[in-house]
Design a protein around this nucleic acid. Structure first.
Lengths: 102, 102
DNA sequence: CTCTCACATCATCACCCGCTGATACCAGCG
DNA sequence: CGCTGGTATCAGCGGGTGATGATGTGAGAG
């Protein structure tokens, strides 16, 4: 299908807290404790969101002793970027493709 | 802040129906009747989503007699693409920036 | 071994949000 | 003018989802 963005990833990123998490993880690899400090959310809430992000394939987990580190999968973000770029390119030429009034 | 994606736009695009609308509008400029045919949703439902998309600055309206045409604003999609690209670039170098266990 | 800490899972609740039906509005056409 | 068709707005309902508390698990420290 032409220039269709994956709805699941977008929906997952649509949550403000999850987007904040992704933004934080784009800067450095962090574990749950750090994320609790940075976001101010409860640990159990964070764990829920991390599960969602994990199942969406946006982050990877890396156990380190008692801690669990999370890091982003850059290829997902790259894919999103390309899909939006394709949409934008298509949209630029779509202005003239005006379907006739029925 | 560094490489922060606009949460509002993402949240708006997080809805599957709205994402479908955006995908359709990326191909051609359409009016509400066309969107009703394409998506199968009710007219009032579509109108609600179009209002959301309009207020988020993602689409523009262009009245044409009794019809209302919607077209995408490509710069919004371009901005998204760039922001995700920046996030991805940052994420690629973030793997080594591992904050120490507390 | 036991205790503590980091993290995950489960169950529950409340609230937001998308869907729907009714209705109002506006533009063309007779 | 009134009538018809296209579109927007409004009120209300119901389900999905994010937040919270209690609890389970597993790894290290003592």
């Amino acid at each position: 299908m032409l220039t269709s963005v994956d709805p699941d990833v977008i929906r997952v990123l649509g949550d403000p807290l999850r987007l904040q998490i992704v933004t934080l993880l784009a800067r450095e690899t962090l574990c749950t404790t750090h994320l609790v400090e940075e976001t101010g959310a409860k640990q159990t809430n964070l764990s829920n969101h991390m599960k969602v992000l994990r199942e969406a394939g946006i982050v990877e987990t890396e156990p380190c002793g008692r801690f669990t580190y999370y890091k982003l999968k850059p290829e997902v973000l790259t894919g999103l970027s390309e899909q939006f770029a394709a949409l934008a390119a298509s949209a630029r030429t779509a202005a003239e493709n005006k379907r006739a009034c029925p």
